[in-house]
Design a protein around this nucleic acid. Structure first.
Length: 859
RNA sequence: GCCCGCUUGGCGGAAUGGUAGACGCAAGGGACUUAAAAUCCCUCGGCCUUCGGGCCGUGCUGGUUCAAGUCCAGCAGCGGGCACCA
């Protein structure tokens, strides 16, 4: 047949798989279930190399598990709501739905060309009313359960996208998508009570043993649990005490001042009678929230002239400041400052000339010196602290908390950095929030029978603000309760809500309830979830919360949706800049042997930059479609799996892709040139095997054992290396002058090879399987099993060291007793010159023998 | 600033505390060919070599061990997360 033609073969086998429904997943299979899911894509227009990597990894797992006898659920869908569709509408005059659906059609075709083992009959798109109507029902259930609520809050406002962002969506003070500095605005917003589950979300991380440790650490930090105490301070001349939150109640005797947030009621009280205070508060509010603004901002305070009485020290009072660095949203919005043991408090005290009193003597250090520019935050023993003197910091925390609680002026408290999830978005292309605002009845849920609340088709996208708000008629409705005129909610849900339950919808994608309980009880949790590290906090934390919400409202019976998570690395590529300093596409750069580059058309010099994550802005993108056109999907898939471990970043190189293609051809030649000499399929094994055949079978069975172990552990790059070795071992033999036993063993080897490569390069595997004379499909074949007895090595070469340095090797039979190995090693030590000269007749002090590993002669 | 990870040939990377550099890419040499492509074979960490081999070598400095890329301590560089959270 000659050269392998991927284009023809891939199309042929994809058609065969589709025709046979090879990947349709049945709910009633007697096989054990396995749910493998890759994070579904946003339909931006075309697939990119990151998708190719993600879906190749998932497909290897899916196909491997199928071959291992599992009933595999491997679905695909579209994270289809979101702002780019509205931007396209504004810029190109195309309706967001049309733009989205066209992108989905394109990208579905591209994914199908990759030959993924996906059950396309379960495809969903979150922008489809058949999806979002159920999300609206879930919202109403959450509302009923108190998990969704509305409140006025200072929220993150993205001035470019003209919408609100959740805390998690603000990166370094900028919108996660627009990159614009985020402003603070006071707005009525919908929230999900993610903080209700803060403790559980934190504790349960310990159970997620098959999640990457760093993702768990990032979530732990994000939740930010802190143990401390709430302490009441009486303010001279006022009735209501001021409550502060602290994690260092042990340092209470070192308190030099109190500080409240500019948004604190106490600040408002002062502002009411003091114009200077009003000015200061206004200044605090005008401060930007960007990283630069925060770093540049000085710690500033405004002395309210109020005095607070020390709760444990009769007769002592401290000043009360309004300070620009105190957050209203955390703790009580007020703090006490202990300058000696907190850097920020020390900076503040130095600036305003407040006393610095040490109350912790550092462990092993001098306690008499002055506090310098650095606060002492380490452990130690309490001093200058009345009844706490002599206690360690830890003991003092306990002691002071007990005293505060006894005296009724404070209590232990646990706080979390995590805030409730703001889900309101002032956008069109999202799931409408199904409530109505009625002047008389308040917030009224839309009756379930009236769901879905559909988006209007005729919104305008050429004016600023929320298209739903701007729409002439859509928001006008009647109150479901009193039937009077009322206003529809015009906020839509954050698109992260859409992706917080899609994995549950896949279990029964056409069910007429949001989540079919029987189906999710069968399929959930997802056994293997695969996606990018960039969702470590956002999506993965939301999905964990939402699953708890689904559990609380009876939709599912579990709290953790993903029992194993794999985070793949990014795909990078070299960057190129022309002599104008503009980024250019790699395809437009011609790189010479010496590493310099020129522009393909102009011939002008091009600067070759470091490898970066592929992105449109750097133009260092390679179009997967073009690669598949040129080399085929199998080559793209093979490249994604070879060389780099999947969790690490992978650099796309043309040479690597060409190398992968050469190997695909080489694999095909191996099958093609061997096939005709082999015995027919299913020829019974010969009664006995000669030494050549036995050796070949040993290689085969060892390879099967190793690759199985590597695939199980996601070590695909190592599995690929083993396949190269296997092919190298098989390639030279043409079968001339070999016996029937050897030819039988060679068929065994090639059939194993075809099945081993099937998860990685499935089209070539089918072609090879057919060439080996089978009428069946390799996708229906079981994963090869290895025979331990055949795989076992009986002789092993081990190193002989002298004083830890390798001087020679000896061959021993596996499992040879220590004494025998020692004797052999010492005998060889005389025979092998290298070892003998290293020993130089010195007296042997000790001989260490590690079975099947090494001998070390110590002299 | 705090938390986490990484650092091995020209490059991507292998290596349950036990023969460092598997496998691949790139490079060099050779075979085949009128030629090229494709394919096949050989070499490929550094220094020295009488060609047997010797010495050094996994970011740096120490330590534990018969034995360290691997374990421990300190340092450096690179990358990621958090960012006034009291």
């Amino acid at each position: 047949m000659g050269r392998y033609e991927p284009a023809a073969a891939e199309q042929k086998w994809q058609a065969v798989w589709t025709e046979r429904g090879a990947f349709l997943c049945r709910d009633d299979s007697p096989r054990p279930k396995y749910y493998v899911l890759e994070m579904f894509p946003y339909p931006s227009g075309r697939i990119h190399m990151g998708h190719v990597r993600n879906y190749t990894l998932g497909d290897v797992v899916a196909r491997y598990k199928r071959a291992k006898g599992f009933n595999v659920l491997h679905p695909m869908g579209w994270d289809a709501f979101g702002l780019p569709a509205e931007n396209a509408a504004r810029d190109k005059g195309v309706h967001p739905r049309d733009w989205t659906l066209a992108n989905i059609a394109t990208m579905r075709g591209e994914l199908q060309r990759m030959g993924l083992s996906i059950d396309w009959s379960r495809e969903i798109a979150t922008c489809h009313p058949g999806y979002y109507q159920h999300q609206q029902k879930l919202f109403l259930d959450f509302l009923k359960a108190g998990l969704a609520y509305r409140k006025k809050a200072r929220v993150n406002w993205d001035p470019i996208d003209q919408t609100v962002l959740a805390n998690e969506q603000v990166i370094e003070g900028k919108g996660w998508r627009s990159g614009a500095p985020v402003e603070k605005r006071e707005l009525e917003q919908w929230f999900f009570s993610i903080t209700r589950f803060a403790e559980d979300l934190l504790q349960s991380l310990d159970r997620l043993e098959s999640w990457p440790e760093r993702v768990r650490i990032m979530q732990r930090n994000w939740i930010g649990r802190s143990e401390g105490a709430r302490v009441q301070w009486e303010i001279v001349g006022q009735k209501a005490p001021l409550e502060v939150y602290t994690t260092r109640p042990d340092t209470l005797f070192g308190a030099a001042f109190l500080a409240v947030s500019a948004d604190h009621p106490v600040a408002a009280g002062v502002a009411a009678r003091d114009a200077n205070a009003r000015a200061f508060i206004a200044e605090c509010h005008s401060l930007g929230t960007s990283l630069e603004a925060i770093e540049a901002a000085e710690k500033k305070g405004f002395d309210t002239k109020l005095r607070a009485k020390h709760p444990l020290k009769a007769g002592e009072t401290v000043p009360v400041y309004i300070a620009n660095f105190v957050l209203m949203e955390y703790g009580t919005g007020a703090i006490f400052g202990c300058p000696a043991h907190d850097q920020r408090d020390l900076d503040f005290a130095r600036k305003y000339g407040l006393p610095v009193r040490r109350v912790v003597a550092p462990a092993g250090g001098a306690a008499d010196g002055e506090i310098g520019a650095e606060a002492e935050t380490g452990d130690g023993v309490l001093i200058n602290s009345d009844f706490l003197n002599g206690l360690t910091v830890a003991a003092a925390k306990v002691e002071v908390a007990q005293r505060l609680e006894r005296d009724g002026i404070g209590k232990r408290e646990i706080n979390y950095r995590l805030r409730d999830w703001g889900v309101s978005r002032q956008r069109y292309w999202g799931c409408p929030i199904p409530v109505v605002h009625c002047a008389g009845c308040g917030i009224v849920p839309v009756p379930e029978a009236e769901l879905p609340v559909r988006l209007p088709d005729d919104a305008r996208f050429d004016e600023s603000g929320n298209p739903l708000e701007n729409h002439p008629t859509w928001k006008h409705t009647t109150c479901p309760r009193c039937r009077k005129a009322a206003r529809r909610e015009t906020d839509t849900l954050d698109t992260f809500v859409d992706s917080s339950w899609y994995f549950a919808r896949f279990c029964a994608p056409r069910a007429n309830v949001p989540v079919d309980r029987k189906a999710v009880d069968t399929w959930l949790p997802v056994d293997q979830y695969i996606g990018g590290i960039e969702h470590a906090v956002l999506h993965l934390l939301y999905a964990r919360f939402f699953t708890r919400g689904l559990q609380a409202t009876g939709h599912v019976g579990l709290d953790e949706p993903f029992s194993a998570l794999f985070t793949q690395g990014m795909v990078g590529h070299q960057t190129f800049k022309d002599d104008q300093g503009k980024w250019i596409y790699p395809a437009d750069a011609v790189v010479a042997e010496d590493g310099t580059a020129r522009h393909k058309d102009t011939g002008r010099p091009v600067t070759v930059g470091r490898s970066e994550k592929m992105s449109k802005s750097l133009k260092n993108v390679v179009d997967p479609g073009a690669i598949i056109d040129r080399f085929g999907a199998d080559t793209a898939r093979w490249f994604m799996l070879s060389d780099s471990p999947p969790e690490r970043d992978l650099e796309w190189t043309d040479a690597g892709a060409a190398g992968a293609f050469r190997f695909i051809q080489r694999l095909w030649r191996l099958f093609d040139e061997s096939a005709d000499q082999l015995p027919t399929p299913r020829t019974p094994a010969p009664k006995s095997f000669g030494s050549d055949a036995t050796a070949l079978r040993a290689v085969t069975h060892r390879t099967v054992a190793k690759i199985s172990a590597d695939v199980e552990r996601f070590r695909f790059n190592v599995a690929v290396a083993r396949l190269y070795e296997f092919v190298n071992a098989l390639a030279p033999d043409t079968g001339a002058a070999k016996g029937a036993d050897w030819l039988w063993a060679r068929r065994e080897a090639l059939e194993a090879l075809a099945r081993l490569i099937a998860p990685m390069v499935p089209h070539l595997a089918e072609e090879a399987w057919r060439r080996l004379g089978h009428a069946t499909l390799v996708v229906d074949e079981p994963w090869p099993e290895h025979d331990e007895a055949l795989a076992r090595e009986d002789v092993v070469t081990i190193g002989v060291q002298v004083n830890g340095k390798l001087r020679g090797t000896i061959e021993v039979s596996v499992g040879m007793a220590e004494a025998a190995v020692r004797a052999l090693a010492l005998k060889e030590a005389e025979a092998q010159e290298r070892i003998r000269t290293a020993l130089e007749g010195k007296p042997i002090r000790k001989v260490i023998v590690v079975q099947d590993r090494i001998v070390n002669i110590v002299v």
